[in-house]
């Protein structure tokens, strides 16, 4: 059986933690989460990590593997170099709870502040609507999001500049886009995007798109179109003029 040295962050909210090393053997086909579970079962039963589905569908096991934000359940051992120690750290943009578990409650608070879906009246007497597949495909891309928050973790506006009070982060631009571009929706969120949600802070470095395990093209398909809508509404001179007399 091949072996590796795992350096896992151990610590809690009271004290600064440190990497601790665990030698471990693994089998062919194992993912990083399997190895963390093996360490938990055999060496450290109180090692904290979140997980649920182990199939890349729930977005619970987000961590930084050798410094890169990834899902532990979708990172195969044969994709990483085990000749060097493998570091497993919690997401760094959120407060630590314990070991690999972070406090992501900020994300839930942000979502609650975004104006919810508000559909137009149903198209048919049975309460249903008519939409073409090609018209919903763009929104379906955004709705693939599993809320792993890796995009939030990697976004420098949050990670380095800590603008959590002024900027909602890529996940919630994707969420806003999924509402704004839903053919049935009648709500207007552009003023919020510009003012409270800080879309202007994003300088489209596409780090979020790079780490998205669902391969959502966050920057190109969600953020840039939203930025364009904000610009059209609030900064376009012709529109401004028109609004003045409208």
């Amino acid at each position: 059986m091949p072996s590796a040295k795992f350096q896992i962050w151990r610590g809690d909210s009271h004290q600064s933690g440190e990497l601790q090393e665990y030698p471990v053997e693994f089998q062919e086909g194992m993912v990083v989460l399997d190895v963390v579970h093996k360490i938990q079962a055999e060496q450290q039963p109180d090692l904290a990590c979140r997980w649920n589905c182990k199939a890349g569908k729930c977005g619970s096991c987000s961590a930084e593997i050798n410094g890169k934000p990834r899902l532990m359940c979708m990172t195969r051992m044969d994709q990483i170099d085990v000749s060097e120690p493998v570091t497993i750290e919690p997401m760094r943009s959120f407060p630590l709870m314990k070991d690999l578990v972070t406090d992501v409650s900020w994300n839930y608070k942000i979502k609650q502040k975004i104006k919810p879906f508000k559909p137009r009246k149903p198209d048919a007497p049975d309460g249903s609507w008519r939409m073409q597949q090609e018209d919903v495909e763009r929104v379906q891309e955004f709705r693939k999001c599993i809320e792993c928050f890796l995009c939030q973790d990697v976004c420098h506006v949050l990670r380095e500049h800590h603008l959590h009070d002024e900027f909602i982060g890529p996940r919630f631009f994707v969420y806003t886009a999924s509402l704004e571009m839903n053919p049935l929706d009648t709500e207007d969120r552009l003023a919020d995007l510009k003012e409270e949600h800080g879309i202007g802070y994003c300088n489209i470095t596409k780090c979020c798109t790079d780490v998205c395990p669902e391969h959502i093209t966050i920057t190109d398909n969600a953020i840039i179109p939203l930025k364009e809508r904000v610009v059209d509404r609030f900064f376009d001179p012709l529109t401004k003029l028109f609004r003045m007399f409208a």
């Binding site: 149903p122 249903s128 939409m131």
Partner: peptide, 23 residues
């Protein structure tokens, strides 16, 4: 069926039939 239609009113986006209904 009624419960599924209700989901659409709450924001679910199902795949569509050619005539625009839920596939």
């Amino acid at each position: 069926a009624e419960r599924v239609h209700e989901l659409e009113g709450w924001g679910a986006v199902f795949d569509r039939t050619p005539d625009g209904r839920i596939l």
